[in-house]
Design a protein around this nucleic acid. Structure first.
Lengths: 110, 110
DNA sequence: CATCCTTATCGTATATATACGATATACGAT
DNA sequence: ATCGTATATCGTATATATACGATAAGGATG
């Protein structure tokens, strides 16, 4: 179920927006922080740390997984999630690049 | 009409999520790019450049204004928008800081 | 095999976002 | 004052997001 891609906007604009959307909920920020802070991938522990139900956490994890920011592996009856550092680095770089590009265009205003 | 702030998450997590939400639509990315590229603040020109109706553009502008990324001034019958570079810089810095913090926690995984 | 534990998905209710046309507002010009 | 232009807001329809309980699925364990 890939994104619709409305073709009204460029792929770059779309993908930056998609990335931002993945980060646009505090629960997902919090999940990433917890995942990053643990040296072992957890899952049930994640639910325990979050002020949300198990199903809701699972849903947020799905969003993060679809955005590629998180990797999920099934490990027996448990699932093991961890940050995809490579993708996260790409994300950061995309954001920084966009800001820089925008900043370069800086001009007088109002 | 300030944000609800659910208090389930920290203020930092919430504000980063809010920022991401403001950037989570390609139209708003595009608007920021156009505003940044012009050395004069525009508005109707903005609508002309966007594949969206005037009212929809105005709505996106409102979101950007509420997020503080854009400044809008009424100038006669026209409105004059421009990027709030200071806020944009703050935003970039907040994002970069978060990524750095997260990266510091980097640990072994799966 | 029956059962337990863990996690994903389903069903559903509610809220928010998105888009557009229509209308209101605000000002400049005539 | 009237008209025209430019922009914001309203009304509304539709889509997506969010949250949770309930249920299914998958493997471990007795």
């Amino acid at each position: 179920m890939a994104k619709a891609q409305s073709d009204r906007f460029s792929t770059q604009q779309q993908s930056l927006a998609d990335l931002a959307k993945a980060l646009s909920h505090p629960a997902r920020i919090a999940i990433l922080e917890v995942l990053a802070a643990r040296n072992v991938c957890i899952c049930g522990e994640l639910v325990a740390e979050m002020p949300l139900s198990q199903s809701t956490v699972s849903q947020h994890l799905k969003v993060l997984k679809e955005a590629g920011l998180v990797i999920g592996e099934i490990d027996g009856p448990k699932s093991c999630y961890c940050v995809d550092w490579s993708k996260l680095a790409d994300a950061q770089s995309a954001i920084v690049t966009w800001f820089s590009k925008t900043d370069t265009l800086k001009a007088n205003c109002c």
